[in-house]
Design a protein around this nucleic acid. Structure first.
Length: 552
RNA sequence: GUCUCCGUAGCUCAGCUGGAUAGAGCAUACGCCUUCUAAGCGUACGGUCGAGUGUUCGAAUCACUCCGGGGACACCA
């Protein structure tokens, strides 16, 4: 529709198509589309008003002119009919598009550290990454997800030392993860008094690098137990699987060729005993420590090579916190320096921190907030609330899970991802206003209405599309556009905001008029409109990895 | 110090590829269920869009400077 307007306007005025902008009017009563006529004034040597009036006369749309804006009104009935038919026919496929057809995309996200609790610090990466995965699929990309575990590095040397020195072999029913956490904290306390312990940690890490049997045995065990533990959290978040479960350790034998290549291309130099790449105005990248051990960035480049080879990606998304932006700038710069042309396919999808009372949710001193605990608490709170509201609800456990977890996910995804988020469980589970439960509630309301649907053909002859309904149809029609914008900016919050708008439009419609009345045809029309809304809410929440409930 | 992100209503945030009167939710005060789920809808209250300069027909939006806050900045990841 937009393109149509652009073509017509540019041909009437004989101006370049790029100059024609089609916007949405501030006030919907003006019209459905607006074309500001100011940009043409210079070129045509006429006043914006004159130009607008000219268009007003010549365009075969229902138009009007206000303040130099040409407003265009669409044929409400025809659009409504077509759209509702389309949505009900396409169901889950409504909004599916070919924006990314034929392109490969890799999303790396979640990436918890083994031998550590799955903390709130990884919530954002997990939910943003999963949403981007879903959104990319909807846009026709061939998507692969990678969970790149933090399973390597000096801290595992420290952990191995700590566990072999102080660890209890008898767990008394407690979890090994808790025990590891305990000894890791102890290590840091002891290391403050006795710096030589750091050296012990390094030695253990070296043993791990050298494939020492004992070190590997413990390390594998930590890893297996961690994955079992993580799976409980993923189950709660309805994340069934990753296409690839990987980790930094996978690349421990693949770094040398990369370093050799850097050497060959004359990029390496020695500074203060360490091997670095000079990046000009950027902080130099450390490739090898002065003791020869590998570093994060070297592993990341090896991983990047490997993924380029295996997936031949057109785009790779790293869903990692804002604080690592320098790291990814360095990675890109190195790729350029190595003479490869795909550095602009590497995208760091940064996000802000979770704050509590304006301060970072602390992970130090063993005080990390465990994600699963928060989710469990959210589910409990949801359950308490539901019992109050609807004591006779049948599948209360399933409903509380979807609502509690959905609320936490939605809270994370509703805002611009770069910004920090103030995390407060009470606010998150406040079931009013701009929240996940508000959307789920809207969906449930519609489901209950739909029991009255008769599945008959609607005649649009005598149907009046009032403001409430037209707003609703209009919002529904923008779904695909919103999904594509969300992909372009790699920001799921666009979907979240859109769904809030849609639900708000629906709830106004619902509050202002009775949907089921004596006019069978009109009732059926309103039910079909409602059904279309429910399809989009369900699908949109699905993109955010949030479930819906038919009754709550 | 350098780089970077952020600063909009009492609070949490939208709006930022320049466009018409700056919007939601929460909080506060009212109002709306004998009929479809009140987890809803509505009314009122609430703003020097951090400050300034510039570009423009037009700036919350772009540029520059300053102020304030967060983050990163060599052997962690």
């Amino acid at each position: 529709m937009k393109q149509d307007i652009i073509n017509k306007v540019s041909s009437i005025l004989n101006v370049d198509k790029d100059l024609v902008k089609v916007e949405y009017p501030k006030d919907r009563s003006f019209g459905d589309f607006a074309v500001p006529c100011f940009p043409f004034a210079k070129e045509l040597h006429k006043s914006p008003m004159d130009i607008a009036n000219l268009l007003n006369e010549q365009l075969d749309y229902d138009t009007n002119v206000v303040n130099g804006f040409l407003n265009i009104k669409m044929d409400k009935k025809a659009i409504t009919k077509n759209l509702i038919t389309k949505i009900i026919e396409e169901k889950d496929n409504y909004g599916t598009n070919e924006y990314g057809k034929g392109k490969n995309i890799v999303v790396e996200y979640s990436s918890p550290n083994i031998a550590k609790p799955f903390g709130m610090g990884h919530l954002r990466s997990t939910v943003i990454g999963q949403a981007l995965y879903n959104i990319s699929k909807k846009c026709g990309f061939n998507v692969s997800s990678i969970n790149y575990l933090g399973d390597y590095g000096t801290q595992f040397g420290k952990l191995l030392y700590a566990y072999t020195t102080w660890g209890n072999k008898d767990l008394n029913g407690g979890s090994i993860i808790d025990e590891l956490k305990r000894v890791y904290v102890k290590f840091h306390e002891e290391a403050e008094k006795n710096p030589e312990l750091d050296e012990e940690g390094r030695k253990w890490f070296k043993r791990l690098e050298d494939n020492d049997e004992e070190a590997l045995k413990y390390w594998n065990w930590f890893k297996d137990e961690s994955l079992k533990e993580f799976q409980k959290t993923y189950d709660l978040l309805s994340i069934n699987r990753f296409d690839e479960l990987s980790g930094e350790s996978v690349y421990k034998d693949k770094m040398q060729p990369v370093i050799d290549e850097m050497e060959e291309k004359n990029l390496l130099s020695i500074s203060e005993g360490a091997t670095i790449i000079d990046l000009g105005d950027m902080t130099p990248a450390l490739i090898k420590r002065s003791d020869g051990a590998s570093l994060y960035i070297t592993r990341d480049i090896a991983a990047l090579y490997d993924r380029k080879k295996r997936y031949n990606f057109d785009e790779i998304l790293y869903v990692v916190g804002n604080e690592q932006s320098l790291h990814f700038e360095q990675v890109k710069r190195i790729v350029d320096k190595m003479g490869y042309d795909y550095s602009d396919q590497i995208k760091h999808i940064g996000f802000g921190m979770l704050l509590q009372g304006g301060k970072k949710m602390s992970t130090r001193h063993g005080k990390s907030v465990i994600l699963k605990d928060v989710l469990d608490e959210a589910i409990e709170l949801a359950k308490t609330y539901i019992k109050e509201k609807n004591p006779n609800l049948e599948n209360i456990d399933e409903v509380s899970k979807k609502i509690g977890v959905g609320a936490v996910i939605f809270n994370d995804l509703k805002n611009y991802r770069i910004n920090d988020i103030e995390f407060n469980l009470e606010d998150t589970l406040r079931f009013e206003g701009n929240t996940g439960p508000y959307l789920q509630y809207t969906y449930a309301r519609i489901c209950s209405l739909l029991n009255n649907k008769q599945n008959i053909e609607v005649s649009y002859d005598n149907i009046d599309i009032n403001e409430d309904k037209w707003n609703l149809v209009w919002t529904l029609s923008k779904y695909e556009e919103v999904i594509i914008s969300a992909k372009e900016s790699n920001d799921p919050s666009l979907i979240a905001k859109y769904l809030l708008d849609l639900a708000s439009d629906f709830n106004k419609f619902y509050a202002h008029e009775k949907i089921i009345d004596n006019d069978i045809n009109y009732t059926e029309f309103k039910l079909k409109l409602s059904e279309a809304v429910s399809i989009v809410i369900k699908d949109g929440l699905g993109l955010l990895n949030i479930g819906v409930i038919k009754q709550m």
